[in-house]
Amino acid sequence: MFTCLALAAPLVPTTAAAAPLAAPLLPASGLVLSVQPEMGTLSTTQLSCEPAGGLHKHAKEACAQLMPVEGDFRKLEDTGAMCTMELNPTKATLRGKWRNKKVDFQQVYSNPCVVRAFTGKVFDF
C-alpha cells in the first residue's frame, strides 16, 4: 500500500504592482564627427551629449563647447592657438542629431591645426 503525501503551499492571492519599465536614458544629442585632411588620413569618432559620452576622448569638454552654440561648431570662438601657415585643406564634418534635431555641418580649414584652433575640443580626437 502506497501513501501519497502531497505538500502544497497555501494559495495566497498576490497582487504585485507592476512597475513601469524605465525607458533607457538616450542621449539627446548623438553626433558623428570626422576630420579629413587633404594630405592625411580620415579620423572619425562618436560624441553623445546630454549626457556626455561616446568614443570622443574629450566628450565632456566638447559637449560643454557645443551647448551654447546649439551644436553648430561653426559658431565656436577661435581658441587663439598658434598654427603654422601649412596648406593642407582639412574638412571637419559633424552629422547626427542635436537636441533631437537633425544636424549636418561641414567646414574646410587651411590645415588640421586651424581646425582645432577654431573648434577647440570638438574636433580634438
Rank of each mutant, 00 (worst) to 15 (best):
A81M: 15
V32P: 00
V69S: 04
L26S: 11
P10Y: 11
L33V: 12
K97N: 11
P51Q: 09
L94W: 04
A19K: 10
P112C: 10
Y109T: 01
F105E: 02
K91H: 00
T14N: 06
R116H: 09
S43A: 12
A52W: 04
F118E: 06
V12L: 15
V69D: 04
V122T: 09
P27A: 15
V122H: 03
L55C: 02
A64F: 06
P37S: 09
L42S: 10
V12F: 10
L87Q: 08
G80R: 06
Q65D: 09
P20E: 13
P10T: 12
A28D: 10
L33R: 06
T90M: 03
M67E: 13
Q65K: 11
A19Y: 01
P20V: 12
P27C: 10
A62R: 05
T45P: 00
L26H: 08
A17T: 13
H58G: 06
L47Y: 09
A117Q: 15
E86P: 00
Y109M: 03
A23G: 00
S29Y: 03
A18D: 01
S48Q: 14
S43E: 12
T119I: 04
M67T: 14
D124M: 14
P51F: 02
G120K: 06
V35T: 14
A62H: 06
L66M: 13
G120V: 05
L7S: 11
Q46C: 03
F118G: 02
A9L: 14
A28S: 11
G96D: 07
C49E: 06
T84H: 02
T119K: 05
G71T: 06
A16L: 10
E70T: 12
R99F: 05
L33N: 05
K97T: 15
S34Y: 08
L5D: 08
H56A: 06
L94C: 12
A92I: 04
A59V: 04
R99E: 13
L21I: 04
C63R: 08
A52D: 13
M82P: 00
